[in-house]
């Protein structure tokens, strides 16, 4: 297991390096730079000297290769650059916003599992019954309704019919006021959780249907086990393996920030940080955030593989077969 982990972690290096090079080039290939992002068409009013002075200020005057190696060198020492606009190091900006995104991601997944797994199991057990139909309709809705619509709808109903809106640009951290914090995150988490619940439900349902036809389920039943023990203990546990994969992939996406949901619910998460960094062409910030998101992705993938082994004893990373 240890050897497997070491191998996987070493494999992170080329992946992250690739991401670093790609994002470094991509953001510079997009037309416009920090100067035009800040000044818009007024950038055209600058004289040559004025423009050079700004390029020097933003560090755009150096050759691209020099910029890249300076950035990589600093990044290896934990210095991901500095955001002039925020007046803060990139790393501290990311670390400030990451808890918001992390909490939102966990809440969404919990909500998705709380909705998706029970409906999925019920649908599978009562295959082709009205319950199954109901579950399938719910899941189609979850997949079909986009977040921007559901989120806006939730906000509209809350503010117009209930006269409340827990977050109007005044996000508080969990440690500051846990109740208000959970109120603020509940609706965005519901928005994201609902669409993910649909995938969870469909995956649980199909995996359960498959498992329920397995020989060992028949064996369990013929042993006279209680139906609940058969379903929960034997079928569900095996059916959960693909769901775990699904959660892993989804977590990777969620930790990259939920741009639209964060916009609608004005949450200061990674998604908004990234979008604003791109629109302001803050190269160091875009690079830092992207690298961070990529790191999350590979770490979570590894975590999922490790969890497999825990759920499914047939999976082992130790022996070479």
């Amino acid at each position: 297991m240890l050897r497997y982990l070491t191998q996987r972690i070493i494999a992170f290096v080329p992946t992250l390096l690739g991401v670093a090079i790609l994002v470094f080039l991509a953001i510079r290939l997009v037309p416009g730079d920090q100067i035009t992002a800040m000044l818009g068409t007024e950038a055209g009013m600058l004289t040559q000297e004025q423009r050079e002075s700004l390029e020097e200020y933003f560090g755009l005057d150096k050759p691209v290769t020099e910029q890249f190696f300076a950035w990589m060198g600093n990044a290896l020492q934990g210095n991901f650059g500095y955001s002039v606009r925020h007046g803060k190091p990139v790393l501290s900006l990311i670390l400030e916003r990451f808890p918001v995104t992390l909490e939102l991601a966990f809440l969404s997944v919990i909500i998705a599992l709380a909705i998706g797994i029970p409906i999925g199991v019920l649908s599978a057990i009562h295959h082709n019954s009205p319950i199954d139909l109901f579950g399938r309709v719910i899941s189609m809705l979850g997949l079909a309704v986009p977040n921007f619509l559901l989120g806006t709808l939730i906000i509209y109903v809350l503010s117009v019919y209930f006269g409340v809106l827990p977050n109007s640009g005044n996000y508080v951290e969990f440690t500051e006021d846990p109740v208000l914090n959970l109120q603020q995150l509940f609706y965005p988490a519901l928005t994201m959780g609902f669409s993910f619940a649909a995938s969870v439900m469909r995956m649980t349902r199909s995996a359960m249907l498959e498992v329920l036809n397995e020989d060992y389920i028949r064996t369990a039943r013929s042993k006279g086990l209680h139906e609940r023990t058969v379903v929960m203990g034997h079928a569900l546990r095996n059916a959960l393996i693909p769901v775990v994969t699904l959660i892993g992939v989804e977590m990777g996406y969620l930790l990259g920030g939920a741009v639209i949901t964060e916009q609608i619910f004005s949450l200061p998460g990674i998604g908004r940080l990234t979008v604003n960094a791109i629109s302001q062409r803050e190269y160091a910030l875009v690079q830092g955030v992207t690298l961070f998101i990529a790191l999350n992705f590979v770490v979570i993938n590894l975590a999922v593989d490790v969890i497999y082994a825990a759920i499914d004893p047939r999976i082992s990373y130790d022996s070479k077969s």
Binding site: I155, L158, S159, V164, L165, S266, R272
Partner: peptide, 13 residues
């Protein structure tokens, strides 16, 4: 509040 519809909601709430 980046979404103007949400600003509207905040006013109404």
């Amino acid at each position: 509040i980046p979404d103007e519809a949400s600003i509207l909601a905040a006013l109404r709430a």
